[in-house]
Design a protein around this nucleic acid. Structure first.
Lengths: 284, 284
DNA sequence: CGTTTTGCACCTAGGTGGAAAGAT
DNA sequence: ATCTTTCCACCTAGGTGCAAAACG
């Protein structure tokens, strides 16, 4: 938990209904041993009509005319998850930079994956409410395939096409927020940022990064896990977590940008890419 | 506890025997409310014969011929602190970069203080053993005046001279390691680095930095505090912490380096000062 | 041919001591 | 005279997309 960068701690943890899965982020082993953990479904479980590539805005979000509320945020509708521990049942989550996410999503968000690992942009950031200030929580992210397809981009028509069935994959890793576990008060104090999370296409990755297949579509998921102090906490695993899905954060993993408009939006909005801005705005 | 830099959380906490004191570092308020806290003595309490400026090595350290052990480390002898909770009584702490600290200490370590706040170099880093892996701890640092004197540096003789009585001061702040509180397992997993700690000479500092008086000598102290879950934890405050002092880390606060040899050693050993290396070693 | 890898120029962000100017 | 402040060139460390090369 110190500041040693790249010193990710890796550990194993059992999915309840699945095989083992690598867990990323610095997380103490006693936590993974104790918290049980939810069962990520192999494919995206939300009611979605995403048979076509056409990006759609989250129908669950408060749409309508924009009210101009300060600090664009979205609140995810948790999926049906059965009875929950009161430590997590009241938790609500707001997505930061919602407007930017939507702008990308309307074009069809692409995220670069590299062998060494690449950060997401926009960064997944949330504001959390409703935790028990005195209880311990771990915050996690994972990525679920949006469908069982492989895609390719047709440059002449500027459109994504289905290119076949999805490549086979290993179960998929989970990224612990490096500050996990921490008290509810700590998590709620300010925006929680997953800027240490990196995406890779290296199936043999040894750095604890999230492994994704290029040219496949994914839905990020966010999980709030109450660290149950009880000895037999595994038995309550299903009750002790709550998951949140923001459909505007879905994306296609790529090794190089396909849609030129995505490239331009990345350059325009990511400060690290300022070197590629030329004409746009000198007013700055 | 997220990654927002400069977003230090500040809060007040009561010393048991003293007035209020500012606490720095991101630390949840429930913690400060609960952990009670030790009473830092106004002047350095260890048996020391530091009436003269001559820097002396810690007589408590295992000296003798260097055995060439890997990773130079020191283990602090805790001062007499009365009966302790078993959660802290077995804790031991090793100072990292001990050899470098000693090299500086032999010359008379100087640390720059600025209005905006300046990091220490060497950085105070420790390896911790003997914590209860499942218990919550907070790690703290504070700085105790080594004496009641004000110094000045005589350039012609390259020596420090007493320049009078110490300037009056306010009680002195405490720096919480930003990851506090965390489980013992988390703290012991890797080296704990206080690289977010900054020193300032601004008495009105609003950034939660440690306030020191230039031309005065200080002894850094390191405190391991068990976060007692009991409601009346204040009553056990004295039992729930253990303090460690590494005399080789003592220093004089300055606004500009006085001893040229200190400057050269900083330049030679701090990678951020590489721009000032010229002749020394091109083999690199 | 479509896709991936590599090296790189160009940034952000921020930690150094120096030198000159300012303060007392 | 002594000490402090400010600005700055020069670093570290690392996040960008690009272009060319490599891959299959």
């Amino acid at each position: 938990i110190t500041t040693d960068p790249g010193g990710w701690h890796r550990l194993r943890m059992m999915y309840m209904f699945q095989q083992d899965s690598w867990v990323t982020g610095s997380c103490p082993s006693f936590l993974s041993a104790g918290l049980g953990v939810f069962a990520p479904s192999e494919t995206y479980p939300l009611p979605m009509t995403s048979s076509s590539w056409e990006p759609q805005l989250d129908s669950l979000l408060p749409s309508g005319p924009s009210t101009g509320s300060t600090g664009a945020q979205a609140m995810a509708e948790p999926t049906e998850q059965g009875p929950k521990n009161p430590r997590v049942s009241g938790v609500t989550v707001h997505l930061e930079m919602k407007a930017l996410w939507e702008e990308f999503n309307q074009l069809g968000t692409e995220m670069i994956v590299t062998k060494a690992g690449r950060r997401m942009f926009p960064t997944f950031q949330v504001k959390i409410l409703g935790m028990d200030t005195l209880a311990d929580y771990a915050l996690l992210m994972d990525f679920v395939p949006l469908d069982d397809k492989r895609y390719r981009y047709a440059f002449h028509s500027s459109a994504w096409l289905v290119a076949g069935k999805a490549d086979p994959t290993t179960p998929g890793r989970v990224h612990f927020h490096p500050n996990s576990p921490a008290k509810g008060a700590q998590w709620m104090r300010q925006i929680v940022s997953f800027d240490k999370l990196k995406l890779t296409n290296n199936l043999l990755d040894d750095n604890g990064h999230i492994i994704l297949s290029s040219m496949h579509r994914y839905q990020p998921r966010f999980h709030v896990v109450f660290v149950d102090p009880r000895k037999d906490s595994e038995r309550y695993a299903q009750e002790n977590f709550k998951s949140f899905i923001f459909t505007e954060t879905q994306f296609t993993a790529v090794t190089a940008y396909q849609n030129h408009r995505i490239t331009q939006l990345k350059i325009a909005s990511n400060s690290f890419a300022k070197g590629f801005r030329e004409s746009d705005l000198d007013s700055w």
